[in-house]
């Protein structure tokens, strides 16, 4: 499964949204999709668990869209 679609599924699961495929890759996770900072932390821990990476807190503010999350995951996977 492609990275962005996995992230879409994770967001749909955590935010309990019905159609993961309809989540736009550049939609804002808080402003457009109704997540909040707590649910973003939940997303981060899912990402860390799934991809066996550790994302430092300094990255959090940038991870506001599916694409941005995917970019961070790729970077830390490459570094691992």
């Amino acid at each position: 499964m492609e990275l962005t679609s996995t992230i879409q599924s994770m967001i749909a699961e955590i935010g309990e949204l019905d159609h993961p495929e309809k989540i736009g890759l550049d939609q804002h996770l808080i402003e457009d999709l109704g997540l909040d900072s707590m649910l973003l932390l939940e997303l981060l821990s899912s990402l860390e668990q799934t991809y066996s990476i550790s994302i430092p807190e300094t990255e959090y503010p940038n991870m506001t869209t599916v694409n941005a999350c995917a970019e961070v995951v790729r970077r830390y996977q490459a570094a691992a």
Binding site: I14, E16, M38, L39, L41, E42, S45
Partner: peptide, 8 residues
């Protein structure tokens, strides 16, 4: 090491 998880 405490794991903090959130539910909707």
């Amino acid at each position: 090491e405490l794991e903090v998880r959130f539910i909707k």
